[in-house]
């Protein structure tokens, strides 16, 4: 009996330690990212990095300004969200509220497939199909633009937005719906006056996570946005090449000497990226938590 209790306790501790490892990993990510990132500020001031308008990492007069990359990420993500959010929410409403269960069961695998397609395949498709289309329809010197990135990124963010919104919508108690229907409201009136408002925080959590996914996307954007590090204008910037923070890291890390200022600059960009996604996730989390309260 004693040995069994000893064994049980040991196992529980072992399991606990493994799960606590996730916290350690997160802390290590912070530590290693920030440690190399902070070394940049031996050579460049924090202000120059955060407000610098030029990213010239290899010229003689090198500058490590974050702004072109930050706005690059911002414009591409904003464009993606602009079309993915309405499309995603509409699809989620259709699947969970309107479609016949059989139709919904037919539709869902497509969304799972979309979620499973690797980002290089999206990038490849964008490169060989969308880039020429954009180039010709807008008569541009190159089809590798922020808009191209936005469209591909939007498609990629759809599964996240749809799945989470769908969960939120189907978890609205059916009594709420029935109450509205019993008052003589049509199904559509019920959906947009009762169901969607009740599911709104769940839907926003889905949107936040979709944004998180979009900001962090690398390969696709590297392949379709042209990677020119200039601050994009608005809205004309959509039709010009841009370069995101993620693409910058992926493009340049392979060629920089380890321990150089440029190397540290890329870690600093990585740190910024990490902090942004961390915030986005925390917001999504707190929205979800509030939403749980309501259901109770």
């Amino acid at each position: 009996m004693l040995s069994r209790n000893y064994r049980e306790k040991t196992i529980e501790w072992a399991l606990f330690l493994v799960s606590a490892l996730t916290v350690v990993i997160l802390l290590l990510i912070c530590l290693f990212l920030f440690r190399d990132g902070l070394l940049l500020f031996k050579d460049t001031s924090l202000m120059d990095f955060l407000t610098g308008k030029f990213w010239y990492p290899t010229s003689i007069n090198r500058q490590f300004g974050l702004l072109p990359l930050f706005f690059g990420s911002l414009i591409v993500t904003a464009g993606a969200i602009l079309f993915a959010v309405p499309l995603g929410i509409a699809s989620a409403i259709y699947i969970s509220e309107i479609a016949d269960p059989k139709v919904a069961d037919f539709l869902k695998p497509f969304i799972e497939i979309l979620a499973g397609v690797p980002s290089v395949v999206f990038g490849f498709f964008g490169l060989v199909v969308l880039v020429p289309i954009i180039q010709h329809s807008f008569n541009l010197p190159t089809g590798q633009t922020a808009l191209t990135g936005s469209i591909m990124l939007g498609i990629m963010a759809l599964p996240t937005i749809i799945t989470i919104s769908e969960d939120a919508i189907s978890s609205v108690p059916s009594t709420l719906e029935q109450g509205s229907l019993a008052l003589g409201a049509t199904k559509w009136q019920t959906i947009y006056r009762v169901v969607v408002p009740a599911a709104l925080s769940g839907i926003s959590a889905g949107v936040m996570l979709g944004i998180g996914r979009a900001i962090g996307e690398t390969m696709t954007l590297m392949m379709v946005t042209g990677n020119t590090a200039v601050i994009p204008s608005f809205p004309g910037g959509f039709l010009a090449p841009v370069r995101t923070m993620t693409a910058t890291i992926a493009l340049e890390m392979g060629e920089v000497p380890q321990g150089s200022t440029h190397f540290h600059a890329l870690f600093a960009v990585g740190s910024v990226l990490f902090i942004i996604t961390l915030l986005v996730n925390l917001i999504a989390d707190s929205i979800k938590k509030r939403y749980k309260f309501k259901v109770d």
């Binding site: 916290v23 997160l26 990510i29 996570l209 998180g212 962090g216 996307e217 690398t218 996604t277």
Partner: peptide, 15 residues
């Protein structure tokens, strides 16, 4: 921690 690991961009994992 698990939620945030899930949301960390893959390029950051690369770094």
């Amino acid at each position: 921690a698990i939620n945030n690991l899930a949301g960390t961009p893959s390029v950051v994992f690369g770094l």
